[in-house]
Amino acid sequence: MKFPSVRTALAGAALAAALAGCSSSAPPRYYTLSVPAADAAPRVQAGYLIDVLPVSVPAQADQPQLMVRTEEGSVAALYGERWAAPLAEEIRDALSDALKRDLGALDVRTVKPAANAPVWRVQADVQGFDLVAGSRAQLDATWRVRPLNTAGEGRLCRSLVVENVDGEGAPALVAAQRRAVAALAGAMAAAIRGGTEDAGSSVRTLGCTALPRAQGENPA
């Protein structure tokens, strides 16, 4: 009978240990930017709908895992901490949820509007989406709100939102970025209502201009 060599036995033991380590590693944790449903009670319904378009995000942030920046400028991927959906969808859905709560309006994604229905169209282009370890969440976005078949003045603005991190680890970073997205939605809602675009101390408007009304644009 042939017996395995010591080298073969050791190699087999090392492989078994490696596989055991992989099987016992903690599963990834998933995060969302949307507010939990229990905290999302709707307000009185508005007389118009909202149409929140797909959001663009920078490539370096558009990853399945959380990308965390240090104050020195390096970026680390947290492979065990991931977004529940693609980041662009997370931001779009969080903006929609916040606007629906703030304005009391439904999103055309869930309600098919009539051809002449009053709609506010919302678009956001994110230039910066930063999670800074142990410090802050930062959101830099250019955004547009435009009325369709309803009164109001469209706006094109750029806002910088900074929320301090309250706690340690990935959950605290995500909570801060969740507040930042909600604050950006607050600025959009304020513009739709015809008020100031600064909707809180964490939002700084870097520029804002009125948009000419589009002619013949279909809200559907």
Rank of each mutant, 00 (worst) to 15 (best):
M1D: 11
S5V: 11
V6Y: 12
A9M: 15
G12C: 13
A13S: 15
L15M: 14
A16L: 15
A16N: 04
A17I: 14
A17S: 13
A17G: 08
A20S: 15
G21T: 12
G21R: 11
C22E: 11
S24E: 10
P28K: 07
R29H: 09
R29G: 03
Y30D: 05
S34R: 11
S34T: 14
P36M: 08
A37W: 06
A37S: 15
D39W: 12
A40L: 12
A40M: 07
R43C: 03
A46C: 10
A46F: 09
Y48E: 03
Y48C: 02
L49A: 10
D51K: 07
S56I: 07
Q60L: 08
D62C: 05
Q63R: 15
Q63T: 13
Q63E: 09
G73P: 00
S74F: 05
A76H: 11
Y79H: 13
R82G: 02
W83L: 01
A85E: 13
A85G: 03
P86D: 12
A88P: 08
I91D: 01
L95R: 02
D97H: 05
L99K: 06
R101V: 12
R101P: 01
V108L: 04
T110V: 14
K112R: 14
K112W: 06
P113I: 09
N116G: 12
N116F: 09
N116H: 12
W120P: 00
V122T: 08
V122D: 05
Q123Y: 08
A124E: 11
A124I: 10
D125I: 07
D125T: 13
G128S: 11
V132I: 14
V132H: 00
A133G: 08
A133Q: 12
A133V: 04
A133I: 02
G134I: 01
A137G: 15
Q138P: 00
D140F: 08
R144P: 04
R144K: 11
V145R: 01
V145W: 00
L148C: 03
G152E: 06
G154I: 10
R155F: 05
R158S: 07
N164I: 06
N164G: 13
V165L: 04
D166M: 10
A170D: 06
A170H: 05
A176T: 00
R179A: 14
A180H: 06
V181K: 03
A185W: 04
A187E: 06
M188D: 04
A189V: 09
G195H: 10
T196V: 13
G200L: 13
G207Q: 04
C208Q: 07
A210T: 14
L211M: 14
G216W: 14
P219W: 06
P219L: 04
